[in-house]
Design a protein around this nucleic acid. Sequence first.
DNA 1: TATTGTTATACTCTATAACTATA
DNA 2: TATAGTTATAGAGTATAACAATA
Lengths: 173, 173
Amino acid sequence: MTVSKAAPINAAKASRPARKEPAAAAVESTALQLGELSEHLGYALKRAQLKIFEDFLRCVAPLQLTPAQFSVLMLLDKNPGRNQTEIANTLGILRPNFVAMLDGLESRDLCARIRSTNDRRSHILVLTDKGRAVLARAKKLVAAKHEARLNELLGPANRAALLAMLATIAKEF
Amino acid sequence: MTVSKAAPINAAKASRPARKEPAAAAVESTALQLGELSEHLGYALKRAQLKIFEDFLRCVAPLQLTPAQFSVLMLLDKNPGRNQTEIANTLGILRPNFVAMLDGLESRDLCARIRSTNDRRSHILVLTDKGRAVLARAKKLVAAKHEARLNELLGPANRAALLAMLATIAKEF
DNA sequence: TATTGTTATACTCTATAACTATA
DNA sequence: TATAGTTATAGAGTATAACAATA
């Protein structure tokens, strides 16, 4: 799945054929049929997820935060005093992969590793003041641009229902 | 992949932790709080998508098909006579990346490239007999194991509503 | 011995430029 | 010149093994 800004998806909408063309040489580059594929939840889920992440990146572009980085900052804010393993596990990030991610956030002074006094093996993670400020701005951007647009597209009730079903799948499937 | 099994205990109250003075070495490895993160559609969407793909792979494991490969076979079946660019674009796969993918399917004799007589630059893609057979088996497995389980979890009406909303997001967001 | 953070590594996905052969 | 398929390549994301420091 690519869908970058460079690659316009062919036949995205095209619900009606342009009738201005005289049907001289029947050009048969009709839009392709998804067929049963459009009934498969996994396919729809993946395409929707790509769109959502794409829009998230656009909305929060001034702050240069990826969805994954945003989720880390959110979790640190809500769960002070936790170590790398706990944060990583909660987000489904493998500990080895979390190292480089934290390096990135720490080098930008958004969070800090603090050696625990209880267990000197572990690093307690804390948001810096700048981290808290950036997170606050990010939350505003996401709420005002991203989630608001979703609300507009689906309506509040549908959006809530969608969220609930996705959470159910993530938890119980 | 890791998909933590950490079930977030939804506190939803107690803004004040009434700590009960734990006697000795208080092991307070409480579950972490997702907080507002659980209200973000992107987060829920990504977690759900991982679960769905994971289950898809399990269900169709006997046939060794990934979701992406399945989507290609489905599209070839529904759209005979199309070339690589058309199939790849429809699925959001970049043409260069589609080459290796087709090599894999073709080497397993699931599909074939046929040089077009009209335009000798392009390759018409066709399912082989074996490709049709594998696709038929895959569709059965997915319907009987994967989608059925989803139906059981959400209920048919909810599943349909979920699918519709995801399609809306994919198309119009 | 077990665990935390870390390094190294590998494999998949995704993205872009450029080549070839056709048109 | 432009397009279809391809190659090469680079960057993310994800996965496992193993090591040093600490428990």
